[in-house]
Amino acid sequence: MNPLPIPQVVLRETASQTAGPYVHIGLAPQQAGFDAYRNPIGASLLVDGLEGQPIVLHGQVLDGAGAPVRDALLEIWQADAHGRYAGAEAGGFRGWARACTDFDGGGYRIDTIKPGRVMGRDGRWMAPHINVWLVARGINLGLHTRIYFADEAEANAADPVLNLIDGEARRQTLLALPDSSSDGLAYRFDIHLQGERETVFFEL
């Protein structure tokens, strides 16, 4: 890759604003109660012939009072089963999807595959993980977190990002728990925005 010239001026990034309560209109119109698009973008990650272990991610987003956040939108970004991010390498797997929490129960569900390990900085392997970006009314700047898998204890113990987090209790907030109650292999991952079990959020 050619080096980038050093810019004369670095512009300021456009300021963030909350997605508000009606984010579904733009990003998930069917959930708002109508549809103007023939082709919803981001609705499904699963394509024919996709390699890997299908999994269901599900859970709730909870506020500082423990109440479910019923108007959240989550997006995920992940590698394929071989640890490759999308593009020419990942053979049709986009690696990206979005889902909203339910207006009634506050639950979300994403059908995907379990990602492979990805090389981190300085040649250190990162444990399998799914990047999560979360917006909602009351959230001024989208929150970044990661889903790791509780049944990958050995890889998690060596993960350079998990090891940045002080305290086992806080690290636990990023572990999705295998769950036999749903169809197929499922993992439950609840996001606590605030309070005693507050999820770890990252500055990227």
Partner: peptide, 10 residues
């Protein structure tokens, strides 16, 4: 108020 994390971002 109830949707802002209290911990610093990492």
């Amino acid at each position: 108020v109830l949707r802002a994390p209290r911990h610093a971002l990492i």
